[in-house]
Structure formats: C-alpha cells, structure tokens
Amino acid sequence: MSSKMINSILEDPEFKELARQKNKVSLILTITELVLYFGFIGLIAYNKPFLATKLSAGSATTIGIPIAVGVIILSWILTGIYIFWANSVYDEKVKRIKKRFGG
C-alpha cells in the first residue's frame, strides 16, 4: 500500500469517525469492567459485612456469592456486547472503507 493511499485513508472522514467510535466503545467497556471488578475488590476491602449479609432470613447463602458469580457472568456479557457491536457496526464500516480504497 502506497503512503499516498494511507494518507488519503487517514484524511477520510469515515475512517476518522471509525477510529473515534472504536476508541470510545473500547474505553467505555474497559472502564465498565474496571468499575465492576474493583468495585468488588472495594467491597472486600472496605465492606465485608455487606458481602456477609444473608440473602434472606433462614438462608445460609450470603449476598457475596451471587455478587462474585455475577462479576464473572457480567464480564462475559461485556465481551458479548463488544462482539455484537464489532460484528454488526464496526466490520460493516471497515468493509465499506476497504471497498472505497480498493484495499
């Protein structure tokens, strides 16, 4: 690929929009994951009694158990959200750009 074509792709408004959007989605999802996990760690460090709360009277299960499992499941769901966005929106745009520039 010539440097001229790289430059014209870089100047292309659709490419600029693509890069901006991709960064935004990655950043939002990364921050969500960080909040999710370090929120959990924060509860362990600062609020153990909350995690030790029983789910209901007469139940031995503490709220900490579904929360821990929930962090695992939500993490996976976040990767699913990314895949869904990337497959339906991102890849389509990439395809269009590639087509226009004959890449």
């Binding site: 760690i41 362990i44 460090a45 153990k48 030790a52 029983k54 139940s59 031995a60 299960t61 503490t62």
Partner: peptide, 29 residues
C-alpha cells in the same frame, strides 16, 4: 441453597463470608 446451608452448618457462617485472605485494602487492589 442446600449446599451452602450444609457448608454453613458444618463450618459456621464465616465460611461463606470474606475472611482474612485479603485484609489490607492496598494489597487487595
């Protein structure tokens, strides 16, 4: 529910609570 109930009966309710493994917040982070 029954599995955790049995665990709690056998080892006390603290078995289902966060314990001493992570005590210092900075260390946990």
């Amino acid at each position: 529910g029954k599995l955790f109930q049995m665990a709690s009966d056998k080892y006390g309710s603290s078995f289902l609570e966060p314990g001493g493994l992570v005590s210092d917040p900075l260390d946990a982070f």
